[in-house]
């Protein structure tokens, strides 16, 4: 009995310890961002690794998500004789929800796991301690550029996802199913608002980018420096950041559109 209670207490303390370490880590990383100003190439290389290399998967999934939305939306809307509203449906669901969320999930799988594995391997091969020996702060030299790059790349990727998705919906709706082109665009323009929908979507994607990258670099930095530890940390990155994105999405949606 007492043993069980002790275990419960230990695991609770462990969770809080990890949370505390995570936040301290975030604080030091944010402080390290200042030292990046004279060396923007460090960030550029990471934007390339996280953003440019994720382009293909984001664009292809955006196109297909938009096309599926077009097909499914048409089949539902045509029952109500409202197939002209297809543009509204596709654009609103992409800009408000699917763009930021699906991009963040794909980003966690494509870029987040790579970040964790890279940093975890650096730790287990003692490159990070080597840097400390040379009085180079690994948080500023390794972690901060990756963190910043993730926060920059995510909103851009989400915007591309939404734009390509709208095009996909347009191809299927107007090209394939014969929705009127003028009504498709004009109804969309009449009901999508810049502040309410597009800016809120961008805010969402920035928040997701920060959370996913934070979890990814922290898991890598905090992993047990063995091959098994790195593999576990990579798994945790994908699971935790996906859960965090979905949970945060609900909170943000309630704050933005709830009223």
């Amino acid at each position: 009995m007492i043993n069980m209670l002790q275990k419960l207490g230990a695991s609770t303390l462990g969770i809080f310890e990890r949370l505390g370490r995570g936040h301290l880590f975030l604080y030091y990383t944010l402080r390290g961002i200042g030292s990046l100003l004279p060396r923007p190439n460090l960030v550029l290389a990471q934007v390339y690794a996280t953003g440019v290399l994720s382009l293909i998967i984001i664009l292809v999934s955006g196109l297909f998500v938009g096309m599926v939305l077009g097909l499914q939306g048409y089949n539902t809307l045509v029952d109500f004789g409202a197939e002209e509203s297809l543009g509204v449906m596709v654009a609103l669901s992409l800009v408000r929800e699917l763009g930021p969320v699906v991009t963040a999930l794909l980003f966690a799988g494509r870029a987040g796991s790579a970040l964790t594995a890279e940093i975890g391997l650096m730790k287990s091969t003692e490159q990070l301690s080597g840097m400390e020996m040379m009085a180079v702060d690994p948080l500023a030299r390794v972690i901060a550029p990756r963190f910043l790059a993730g926060a920059i790349a995510m909103p851009l990727l989400a915007a591309m996802f939404s734009a390509v998705g709208v095009m996909g919906g347009y191809f299927v709706g107007v090209g394939l199913l014969g929705v009127d082109e003028g009504a498709f665009w004009s109804q969309m323009q009449a009901s999508v608002d810049v502040d309410e929908d597009i800016i809120n979507g961008v805010i969402k994607s920035i928040a997701f980018g920060i959370v996913v990258t934070w979890i990814a670099v922290f898991e890598g930095y905090d992993c047990i420096p063995t091959s098994e530890g790195v593999s576990r940390a990579t798994t945790r990155t994908v699971v935790h950041s996906s859960l965090a994105v979905l949970g945060l999405d609900f909170v943000l949606t309630a704050l933005m559109f709830g009223e």
Partner: peptide, 23 residues
Amino acid sequence: WVGIFVALGMASLFMLSMKVSNI
């Protein structure tokens, strides 16, 4: 590549606000 990436992202945002919404 990063330049192309950022330009593409900005272009998508621009397209979203001009073409999709009622700005």
